[in-house]
Structures are given as C-alpha cells and as structure tokens.
C-alpha cells in the first residue's frame, strides 16, 4: 500500500533542507514557545508570526496546498478539545441557548480565548510541518540524539520508523480484509474481531522483531549503530540560527508595544 504521509518533500533541495536538523529543531521549538506565550489580544503579533512562517515555508519550497491540507487534517481534533472553552468563561454574554437539560451560555471572552487557542495551535502545527517536511527523519533523529535525547530512545525511534510502513501495511491489509467481509454484527463480535486483529498484529510484530535482531546479530550488531553521515554546523546554520532568534525576539517585543 502507498504511504505518502511520512516526511514527504524532505528529499527536496533548498536552503532550509540543507540546514543542520538541530538548527531547524531549535528554531521550530522557539517559534512554538513564543507563539504560545503571546497574549490573547495581540492580533498584529499573530499576523507577523504567520507571515514569518509563510516565509519559512516558501524558502523551504513546500507547496502551499500540501501544507494547508496537512495542517487542516489535525484541526478537527484541536477543535474537539477547544469546544469546551467558549461556554464556560465568565464575561459579556454573546448568546444563551437551551440544550436539553443545560442552559448554555456563550461569552465574548470565551470566544476570544477559543479563537486565540485555535490560532496558536495552527501556527504551532505549521511550524512542525515545516520542520518535518524539510528534514529527513533519520537526520532529525540524529539531531535529537545530539540534543540529548537518550540513545536507547533514538534507536527505538529509528527501528520504529524503519518498520512502521511494514506494520501499518499489515494493519491496513487486515482492515481491508475485515471490511470486505462485511464487518458488523453485535458489539461482542466487533470487540472479538478487533481484539484478534490487534493480537495477530502483536504476534507478527513480535516475531518480526526477533527475526530482525537475529539478522542484525548475524551481521555483527553489538548494540551500537554506526553511520556515515555526521552532522555538522555550517556558516549558514549560524546565520539562520542567529537571524531566526533575532526575528523571533523582535516580534515578541512587539507584544509590549501594541
């Protein structure tokens, strides 16, 4: 089956693609940090952040349609959590509704918080899309190892990345087989079916993990992974890193001016 969802476009070539993964990770993290720290009513500052992110995505040669689609996929889940908010903030009442047993009140300050949180989430999501769409995952993992993510986790993550496609394929094939056999029936039957599927998937994954280890041991694996690509900071990284931090500081200073 086809998986277009993992680090697509990360093999393109651009100024951003050539940067060290650590530089991009740090800038992306700082971007999210300053966005989250922005007070609710600084609309101008949000626009500046959005413009900055648009610029970064443009320099990274990422298609706007792709980025937009990716960022919107996750928004329903954000809204699901955010929907609680406008009803329960105190303040000027925007509207009051009778829903079954509850008297529900929507307030303006609640709505403002809702819009504010959705904007923050969306900008943060764009930042992560920018990071992972311009960085190959193995490189990103090496970068994370260099910024002190424990080695055993980096190794688990790299094995996970390598076998994800295969295991997801297996799961999707089971799902296809299930659906083509008219999945339905009573609740009990459904639970048993899903349980059997996940159980089978577990046993197959476990056996695959054992085979993988045996194959690796046969090739001399001793618990260390050696690679040829070594990360190194270049002059461009220094310019981009310092420039990025300066711009982010400047924009966040705007918060106090307006």
């Amino acid at each position: 089956m086809k998986h277009g969802f993992l680090d697509q476009y990360s093999d393109r070539d651009s100024f951003i693609h050539r940067l060290d993964p650590r530089t991009k990770f740090i800038i992306s993290f700082l971007f999210i940090l300053v966005v989250v720290l922005t007070p609710p009513d600084s609309w101008l500052v949000y626009m500046l952040y959005a413009a900055l992110m648009a610029g970064l995505l443009l320099v990274g040669k990422l298609p706007a349609g792709y980025v937009l689609k990716r960022s919107l996929i996750i928004m329903p889940f954000v809204l699901l959590i955010a929907l609680f908010i406008p009803f329960f903030k105190e303040g000027e009442v925007a509207g009051s509704y009778n829903m079954w047993l509850w008297q529900v009140t929507v307030t303006y300050s609640g709505l403002q918080v809702l819009v504010n949180i959705v904007i923050k989430s969306w900008l943060s999501i764009l930042s992560l899309i920018w990071l992972t769409s311009t960085t190959k995952l193995p490189h990103l993992l090496r970068g994370l190892e260099k910024v002190r993510l424990p080695r055993v986790m980096v190794m688990i993550l790299s094995f996970m990345y390598r076998y994800l496609f295969i295991v997801v394929d297996e799961a999707m094939r089971m799902k296809q087989a299930r659906d083509s056999r008219n999945f339905g029936g009573g609740r009990r039957w459904q639970v048993t079916t899903i349980g059997n599927m996940i159980g089978t998937l577990f046993i197959r994954s476990y056996e695959r993990g054992e085979r993988v280890y045996v194959a690796m041991a046969a090739r001399g694996f001793d618990g260390h992974i050696r690679t040829l690509n070594h990360l190194s900071f270049r002059v461009a990284d220094a310019y981009f890193g310092i420039g990025g931090i300066l711009v982010l500081t400047l924009i966040s200073l705007f918060t106090f001016l307006f």
Binding site: V152, F159, Q190, G209, V212
Partner: peptide, 23 residues
C-alpha cells in the same frame, strides 16, 4: 541489546494498532 529492535518494532505495532478504528 536484543530488546532494542524488538521495542522499536513494538512501537510501530502500537502506532499501527491505533489506526484500527472501531465504531
């Protein structure tokens, strides 16, 4: 060191198992 590849594959398993939705 045997457990590391195994845990990687099992992480992929958890990931895939989360994709199996039920109504």
């Amino acid at each position: 060191e045997k457990q590391v590849p195994l845990m990687g594959v099992l992480a992929a398993f958890i990931f895939a198992a989360q994709m199996l939705n039920f109504p």
